[in-house]
């Protein structure tokens, strides 16, 4: 039997470690043995920080089945994410449930397919954290992985050292040029493909929807298949509510059960970005 908390919440939720990665960006290692054991790259958890709190989906940024720990990276963007970020080491998340969603497609590939594969991962802002377990998973299986990370400036860059250790090359783009190339991740991708003549079998992009949209467009231009991880609104995260629906190839899909990863060439990003704003006014002005 797995370890079980006294109140019947099997997944624990104790924050065993908390670090500040950048301004308003925090890393939390959470004791959740069943989730850590079951997790695969690409999956997410649902977290609640208080009894009145919203259910917030967070992509898993790392997991350690032996220690029973999942790593989450969160950023203060609204009321609910602030509540999560305010939790201190030694405190507990009220709820943590998962792992949810389908794992990344590549976990089904054969060892030889992995060994011969060339991946390009693109992480934007907070999206850098969830690409880490994917890059690590592929790297440890002998795949060739390059990583492009984008941030506003050097001070907001996260997971730099961790990432360097598990990829062939790490490229950085910042809006202000404080580190790496000044510009967007797409500028770096262009340089890699057009000037450096790099060829990739797959591009995986995780970050703000607008970034994923342009990375997917560029990948399509180079005829490279792309995968994006949709960070839609969710309530239950288990397929019950449909708040997370996205149009993929003209068909409605539920991010929580059909995704969160989809073919970047087929996602209707404009609709997805609009749907993300559904409750923004209420969140700003109150109920």
């Amino acid at each position: 039997m797995c370890a079980q908390a006294a109140d019947g919440k099997s997944s624990g939720g104790l924050i065993v470690e908390k670090r500040t990665l950048a301004e308003n960006i925090y890393l939390m290692k959470v004791y959740a043995p069943r989730i850590a054991k079951a997790a695969l790259p690409g999956q997410f958890v649902i977290v609640r920080a208080s009894e009145h709190g919203e259910r917030i989906p967070l992509t898993i940024s790392d997991y350690d089945a032996v220690r029973g720990i999942v790593t989450l990276v969160t950023q203060v963007v609204g009321v609910s994410s602030r509540l999560i970020c305010l939790k201190a080491e030694g405190e507990r998340l009220t709820d943590i449930a998962g792992p949810l969603g389908r794992p990344s497609e590549f976990v089904h590939k054969t060892p030889s397919e992995l060994m011969s594969g060339h991946w390009l991962f693109v992480g934007g802002g907070l999206g850098t954290a969830p690409i880490y377990p994917q890059v690590k998973w592929l790297h440890t299986r002998g795949a060739t992985v390059d990583v492009v990370v984008g941030a506003k400036s050097a001070s907001l860059l996260i997971f730099q050292e961790e990432m360097k250790a598990v990829c062939r090359a790490l490229y950085i783009a910042t809006d202000d040029g404080s580190v790496g190339q000044k510009g967007l991740v797409t500028d770096v991708i262009r340089r890699l493909v057009e000037e450096n003549r790099q060829s990739y079998d797959t591009v995986v992009a995780i970050g703000p929807m607008i970034m994923m949209k342009f990375v997917a467009q560029l990948a399509q231009q180079y005829q490279i298949p792309s995968v994006v991880s949709m960070n839609t609104l969710m309530v239950d995260g288990t397929g019950m509510c449909g708040a997370c629906r996205v149009t993929v190839g003209g068909k409605t899909q539920f991010t929580c059960v059909d995704g969160p990863e989809f073919d970047g060439a087929l996602v209707d990003f404009d609709e997805a970005m609009r749907r993300q704003t559904m409750y923004r006014e209420i969140e700003i002005n109150g109920k």
């Binding site: 009145h52 509540l83 509510c241 449909g242 704003t277 409750y279 209420i282």
Partner: peptide, 29 residues
């Protein structure tokens, strides 16, 4: 998929499980 179209499941889950009708709840409706 326009903004403002929801399933009854979503609407009711927000209001019942998440208690969106109460001022103390963080869940919007």
């Amino acid at each position: 998929n326009l903004n403002g179209v929801v399933s009854a499941n979503e609407f009711l889950t927000r209001n019942n499980l998440m208690r969106a009708y109460e001022a103390t709840s963080d869940t919007p409706i």
